[in-house]
Design a protein around this nucleic acid. Structure first.
Ligand SMILES: [Mn+2]
Ligand SMILES: [Mn+2]
Ligand SMILES: [Zn+2]
Ligand SMILES: [Zn+2]
Lengths: 157, 157
DNA sequence: TTGTTAATGGAAACCATTTTCATTAAGGAG
DNA sequence: CTCCTTAATGAAAATGGTTTCCATTAACAA
């Protein structure tokens, strides 16, 4: 029977063990928030959501934890050009929900899309292989983003 | 016969006229430096290169001018994740030298590549059309970047 | 040449993120 | 369970690229 304050039951529990990281309340709080939230949260967004339930987790820890999670590949750090990093859960254990982003340069609206994703992923894989070989890079990651005006913003002009 | 201090003869002269922008010494200095430099310069890089010849052009003007040039489409603003914007001339009048970037996450080395660019551009064009229609976006721009470790950095580990 | 006003430079402000450092607590050893 | 090592933390201060402010200058149309 689980104790009241029982931690370490999340699907991510094992992820920390192997890497020598400690499983702390702050880290769980952040993963918890990320897995329950839609969208692309900034460090401060996350802080605001974590704070009511864990008032003793500071913004610094949010930054540090996001960095760790990002290095572990559990969280993706995103840049939409609005001068603050944004984060989303990379993948649940369920499997892929790989997507790319479409960004409005005016109101900063962001659309997750998976259309064309298969063609994109295939081309990316080929390109990665080719570039890696030609330039001796060990490629680990890629970005594809489209920028433009959403319908509201393009009407406004 | 051109006077000694004759300005306004660059290929970009006309670009300003139509848009109500004034052709100033600072703007010419920056375009001049960008067209003579290889690579991806930060605002401060540009300031350093402009300063010896135009000591009265301030860093603020560099930022403002890069913003204007970027809006005019004459300069591309780049982000390689090293916490400072970088800039490169978008296109001379000669035509396309469209390329994408391969970035080492360790030493920040950046490779311009054009390999696979035709396949990439074709897929991008299709995707842009599809996404634009589906999500009612007027897409103006895209980013593709690959991240990884260059051979030196991956040997170092 | 003159007048309008866009453009400018220097200093100060901004603000997301990082660093510092004293304190706390995760988790392995015993 | 208790101890111990040291990773992790919070608060406050520092950092540093970029933006804002404002008085002054100069591009260029009339
Ligand atoms: Mn997303
Ligand atoms: Mn380039
Ligand atoms: Zn918009
Ligand atoms: Zn490298």
């Amino acid at each position: 029977m689980p104790r009241g304050n029982c931690r370490g039951q999340g699907w991510w529990h094992g992820k920390f063990q192997g890497c020598g990281y400690r499983l702390t309340a702050g880290r769980e709080a952040i993963l918890d928030i990320l897995s329950k939230s839609e969208g692309h949260l900034s460090a401060e967004d996350i802080y605001m959501k974590v704070h009511p339930k864990y008032p003793n987790v500071g913004l610094t820890t949010i930054y540090r934890t996001l960095d760790v999670l990002s290095n572990l590949g559990m969280v993706s750090k995103l840049d939409f050009g609005d001068r603050r990093a944004r984060y989303e859960l990379a993948e649940g254990p369920k499997g892929a929900h790989h997507h790319h982003h479409l960004v409005c340069t005016d109101c900063n609206k962001v659309v997750d899309y998976t259309d064309f994703i298969d063609d994109e992923v295939e081309l990316l894989r080929e390109t990665e292989k080719g570039l890696g070989a030609k330039y001796n890079f060990k490629i680990t990651n890629h970005i594809i983003q489209f920028y433009g005006l959403c319908n509201k913003c393009s009407a406004k002009k």
